[in-house]
Design a protein around this nucleic acid. Structure first.
Lengths: 131, 131
DNA sequence: GGAATACTGACGCCATGACGCAAGTATTGG
DNA sequence: CCAATACTTGCGTCATGGCGTCAGTATTCC
């Protein structure tokens, strides 16, 4: 997975032109959705819950207004962070099944350029090429 | 690594109280820094470059003003996304060495609860995949 | 010393968005 | 049919932040 190593360009200008997987996975929309403290808490809440929750349920663990929670959930859903499913008059939100994979892809895309490993040298115990 | 599986709480309110690694790694400051398109591009640029670059160099591949690039680099540095090193009158910015690790930790923290490695062994009573 | 280079900081402008409130829209149960 | 439930949406307020401009600071070179 980390076997594909990219040779770095000489200058940032050349680097900007060189399109790679990194540009695709480094999605500002994803980060913007998670950059709001309340939304980050809501996501953590849903992940830990491990099941789909209604807006009312989620709002019970938030300090902000109910309508704000509904809007935050909608924003997270639009960003692909959550999955929503309507059932009668209640909407069920749960963490997107590919969420962990998306973050792992970002880590992999970075290591395509930095090479494998956390520190590069200095026997830190990390194994190159595998997590 | 996925051996540490957390049993999900019944309600979101209980989930919010249950503090875990997920709350620590899901840092809004990190996401807010990366949630701005220009900053995301700057980071990708620096990662692909594979070396430390000066503000002037980075500014050459950006459409915004020089002072804005300097501010963006400062913001990314303050968020722990970049490392900065001053040398004479130029400041060198490069991607933080633990950046990939941070994203991988997020993926791991999520899977602590969604449990891809669980439920294959020692019946813990939770159902894999669907909730 | 003086000029050029490399960056930082202080404004001001303006778009975005988080927030609460309140009204509106389904959907369900009696 | 009416009321309660579960969300959604419109509106006004206010704080944050991205942006350019321009002035300031530090450092290097001649």
């Amino acid at each position: 997975m980390a076997s594909v190593f990219q040779h770095p360009p000489a200058t940032p200008r050349q680097a900007a032109r060189r399109r790679s997987r990194l540009d695709r996975v480094l999605d500002p929309a994803l980060f913007k959705a998670l950059g709001e403290p309340t939304r980050a808490k809501v996501l953590a809440c849903l992940v830990k819950c491990g099941r789909a929750c209604s807006v009312t349920e989620v709002a019970e663990c938030c300090s902000v207004d109910f309508s704000m929670v509904a809007r935050h959930l909608g924003a997270l859903s639009r960003a692909g962070v959550l999955r929503s499913r309507k059932e009668g008059r209640t909407v069920w939100y749960e963490a997107a099944p590919d969420l962990a994979r998306r973050f792992r892809e970002i880590a992999d895309a970075i290591e395509e350029w930095t090479g494998t490993g956390c520190c590069g040298d200095e026997g830190c115990g990390c194994e190159p090429g595998k997590a």
